[in-house]
Nucleic acid binder design. Sequence first.
DNA 1: CTCATATGAGACATATATGTCTCATGAAAA
DNA 2: TTTTCATGAGACATATATGTCTCATATGAG
Lengths: 185, 185
Amino acid sequence: MKKIRPSTRDAILEAAFQTFNQRPGASLGDVAKHAGVGRATLHRHFSSREALMTALAKTAMEELNTAVDAAVVDATSHSEGLRLALTAIIPLANRQWFLAHELVDRDPAIAAAYKRDTEELVAEIEAARAEGTFADDVPTKWIAETYENLIYGAWTMVRDGDATASQAATLAWRTLTDGLMGDQK
Amino acid sequence: MKKIRPSTRDAILEAAFQTFNQRPGASLGDVAKHAGVGRATLHRHFSSREALMTALAKTAMEELNTAVDAAVVDATSHSEGLRLALTAIIPLANRQWFLAHELVDRDPAIAAAYKRDTEELVAEIEAARAEGTFADDVPTKWIAETYENLIYGAWTMVRDGDATASQAATLAWRTLTDGLMGDQK
DNA sequence: CTCATATGAGACATATATGTCTCATGAAAA
DNA sequence: TTTTCATGAGACATATATGTCTCATATGAG
């Protein structure tokens, strides 16, 4: 087995994440250029644009699950689990978000994995609700929606240099549970 | 002045909103088909894809400003103004969001108008903060980010039939101010 | 009715993206 | 050293999108 550049595939994936995040319609030539490889090499690793997209989705979800599992292992409650997961997800949000928009529908396997992840989030929210973390009259769907959107907002803050990942995570969790009201503390 | 179909332009714009929202990279042929017009007719109204995009951005911002102005006119405080504006924006969120992602940067006029709107939101938040609506230690940038992301979440709920626009607006405002915690009411 | 014009259909050239292929190169393995 | 193979460069054919153009049609204005 010979591999002059074992990282070629990873370099392409990394460049693809960055490129498609800025411009979802970017050409494979752009991706190859950003990766510092020839366009033909990209096709040697990913036979088609479709294949590259699928690999990106797979990679993003694996990274996400790994990070969340590692972060949640020490949680002492479902509520704390949600808080720790949120913190762990923020640095990966850029990788996760662009696939959620329209990439998921293509590959059935990806769609199934995504659905499974969403159901896990919903289950976790239900469990946290039982701990008193969320009001009874708020739909779980809304909590999940807010959870995900706050992550995106937190990642935006970090990306723009307006907060550290830790600060953004604290703000997001505080917003989710207590809101941002001032006087009626 | 003669106009057999005065609504042709509007039909194209409407179809473009829907089509590009589902698939930002959709072709002009797709847009024309959804609008029920010939591809040539689309070019008669919008000389290029760029021109169409600019028109979409202009239309979306005009609609937004009109709706917000109408909603806010009766507000008795800056805080209530933010709440009413949020409610008014939700039904238009689909028109507003896809342009914020990468459309704005192209046309300087659009970019300037968008920047002006953002600055208005920030100023409004600052004013509402003075009324005690937001805690002093929360960055205005985060409040603005959360405000916008909650609107998107609310619109998603409405789109998927999980809530009415009114219900979603109530949830969003409640989340922004009080959060979703259950026990510590 | 007659005329002007917005429209649909479609041909056309051009540009860009895609995927395949070949060939030379250079680095690692033998 | 020689051999092997991933790579970069680039040619190539194909597909799709874009923008322009022509022509026939139909509708509203006069």
